[in-house]
Every structure is written in structure tokens, then in C-alpha cells.
Design a protein around this nucleic acid. Structure first.
Lengths: 200, 200
DNA sequence: CCGATTACATACCGATCGGTATGTGGTGTC
DNA sequence: GACACCACATACCGATCGGTATGTAATCGG
């Protein structure tokens, strides 16, 4: 029972170390030795909890990236009673975007760009998260539309897809420019787009 | 003299093969053996024309990706006498986006997401292309602004940055979804944004 | 208290990587 | 026509990769 908790804890340590390494170097360039280097664990631990490097990567997507996505985007939007306002604020939330996040980029977008054409399993897992994210925006827009805050002629599905795309695009460009200012300028333009969806 | 042309031709063959392989697997995962496999050439040829795999990658950026960028975006916008219309048409140009381009993504964006945090030299070269692209949009917007087609309160610099970002975001998302329809829906929303910059 | 199983650590494997040293046929030069 | 050099081809190298076989201490059920 207690050993079970200890086991789960080391599994979590591997997951977190894997997430960091993959976030920094991408999945293919991530070395399992480097992943384990900082943890004090060895390959025996990793391959006891995960059958392969690929399965570790998929677990990182589901458990680490997925959890962050739900916590930062999906839950706040779902719990908000003013979805339109929450959406605009979410886009304009400046301090949310840390220096490291700008430098290394969005982990979801990084993996999508790297693994999507290479591995079907990765693509499917990443696509699931993508759809969840898009649905969160879409639901918020639709609720706002029902509340009369969003214009009736707005295609909420397409708009949500575009917001996700533009968001990832902005983080990706900011990563290459290594410029927080560019990121904010870019996100402000996304805000302009979203405000354009509102009435008046 | 004739041998010189033969030499340049093989160099070009290596460049093209390198571009394809990098476009498909990314730079780090691209194997020099695989690059040469289809060409009938060997490592001797590659390392005669390029001192390292990295220099080949940088040359691919400058000569292949840069050339494509100038041909497809920069020149058409610069040569157009109706920049605002040209910009909107460029975004709405459907058949331009081939199936393969959707599947493998934008080569510029792919390399940015992969190499930007890993290698400073790559980041700088990619940033140069990014700035050229952004400047092309910015100049077009500014010219349209002078012509009275774009609103005076529009920040052309930020708008151009956002267009580039959203463009790359749309291609990236479409790559993961493997859906031409999603890409078109997404680009249509970008068109909505650009039209919003125009008067009326 | 005692086997059995879990949860790792250690040592090692073949494969593949980028890169190099050397060989060689053709080409230009004088 | 001898010689230098260019433009590759061939064979090989150490390093690193993901993965595995084995050993072992800790923990579990009975």
C-alpha cells in the first residue's frame, strides 16, 4: 500500500523529468539517459513503469500536457459565468506567459509540429487535446452567443479553431523571436479579432 | 567551366534532397545517409560541398526555404499595385496549399519550432526569413494605408506580425488535424481579421 | 517468518548516428 | 603529356542511441 504510493511517486518523477526534457529538446532528440540524469533514477526505473520511450512520451501528453491544458484553459472557461469576458481576459493575461514558456514554446504545439507527420499515435493523442481545447473555446463562444454577447452570424466552431491556431502561432513565433513584447503585441491582435466577434 | 556547372548541379541536388528530408523528419531526425539515398550520391559528395550537416541545414534555410518565401509571398505583394486586395487574395488562395504542404507543414515553421530553442545559428537564420516575411506584409499594409484602404488607427507592424503568426498557426494545426477543410476554415477567419483592418 | 513478487540498479547489447581518412577517375594547365 | 587539383566514392571510426538481461534489496501475502 505504502510501497504502491512510493512506486507511483517515482513514476510521477519520471513523468515530470520526461516532460521537461521533451519540452526542451523535443521527443525524438530527448535522451532517456538525460531524462533520468537529474532524477537520480536509472533505466530500470523508467522501463519498469513504461514499456518504451514512446509510451513515456504518450503518457507525458496525456497526463502532463493534458492536465496543464485542463487547468489553465478548459476549467476557467467552463466555470466562468461570463464566457466572453473570460475569453478576452484569458487572451490578454500577460503574466501567465512566463519567460521560460516563451523561450521553449507551448509543449503541445512543439510536439504537434515535430511528431504529427512522423507518428500516427502521437498525432491522435495530440489531436484529442487539441479538440478539447477547441471545444472549450467553442462552448464559451456559444454560451456567449446565447447570452447575446456574440454576434449571431459568427461561426463559433471556426472561430474557436482560429483562436487555437492563432494562439499556437503567436507562441511559436514568439519562441523564435525570443521576445515577450512580440508575443504580447501578437496576442493583442488576437484580442482585436475576438472583440470583433462581439456585438458592437 | 563545364565541370563547375556539374559541381553546382550536384550541390543543388544535395540541397533539394536535404530540403525534402528535413521537411519530412525535421533537421535533427534527418539522416545524412537517407538524404543521399535517393540521389545516388554518397557522403563524399555532401561533405565536399558542405562542411557539416548543420551547414547543410543552414544552406537549406537560406537557399531553399528563403527562395520559396520570396517567390510565393514577398514578390507578389511587392509587385502588386493593389496591396490590400493582393493580401486578402493571398490568404484566400486555396489551391496554393497542396495536400503535401498540409501534411508536412510549413518548412519554415517546422524548423522554427524544432531548432529555435536548440541552436542559436538556426534561430538567427530563421528569424531573418521571418522578418522578411513580416516586412512584406507590413509594407503591403502600409501602402494600403497610404492609399486609404486600411484604417489609420491600424498598427501595421503588429498586424503583420499577427498575420504571419496566425498563418503559421493555421498550417501547424492543419498539419496535426491532417485536414484541408480545417485549414481553409481557419484561413477564412484570418481573412475576417484582415478585412476588419480595412475601411468600412 | 518465509517464499514470491515488486521495484528498481547495473552492465551490456546491436544499431545508427555524424564525420573522416583515403582512394580514384576525370579535368584543366602549362 | 606530365602534373596538380577538383569532385566525388568507399570504407571505416568513436559516440550515442533505445532497449534488455540480470542482479538485488524491499515489500507483500499467507
Amino acid at each position: 500500500m505504502d510501497s504502491n504510493r512510493q512506486s507511483d511517486l517515482t513514476r510521477q518523477r519520471v513523468l515530470e523529468a520526461g516532460f521537461k526534457e521533451i519540452h526542451r529538446h523535443g521527443f525524438q532528440a530527448a535522451s532517456v539517459c538525460d531524462i533520468l540524469a537529474d532524477t537520480g533514477l536509472t533505466k530500470g526505473a523508467l522501463y519498469h513503469h513504461f514499456p518504451s520511450k514512446k509510451e513515456l512520451g504518450l503518457a507525458v501528453i496525456d497526463e502532463m500536457i493534458g492536465a496543464g491544458l485542463r487547468e489553465r484553459f478548459i476549467r476557467p472557461l467552463r466555470d466562468s459565468e461570463r464566457p466572453a469576458q473570460a475569453l478576452v481576459e484569458l487572451i490578454g493575461n500577460k503574466q501567465e506567459q512566463s519567460e521560460e514558456y516563451i523561450q521553449l514554446g507551448c509543449p503541445l504545439n512543439n510536439l504537434m509540429q515535430e511528431m504529427s507527420p512522423v507518428d500516427e499515435d502521437f498525432r491522435n493523442r495530440l489531436n484529442r487535446l487539441l479538440n478539447q481545447w477547441q471545444s472549450a473555446f467553442e462552448d464559451a463562444l456559444r454560451r456567449a452567443q446565447v447570452a447575446g454577447e456574440v454576434r449571431e452570424d459568427v461561426d463559433c466552431h471556426a472561430a474557436a479553431l482560429f483562436i487555437v491556431s492563432a494562439w499556437e502561432g503567436c507562441t511559436g513565433i514568439a519562441k523564435n523571436m525570443q521576445s515577450v513584447e512580440s508575443f504580447r503585441a501578437c496576442m493583442s491582435q488576437l484580442q482585436v479579432y475576438v472583440v470583433g466577434l462581439l456585438k458592437h
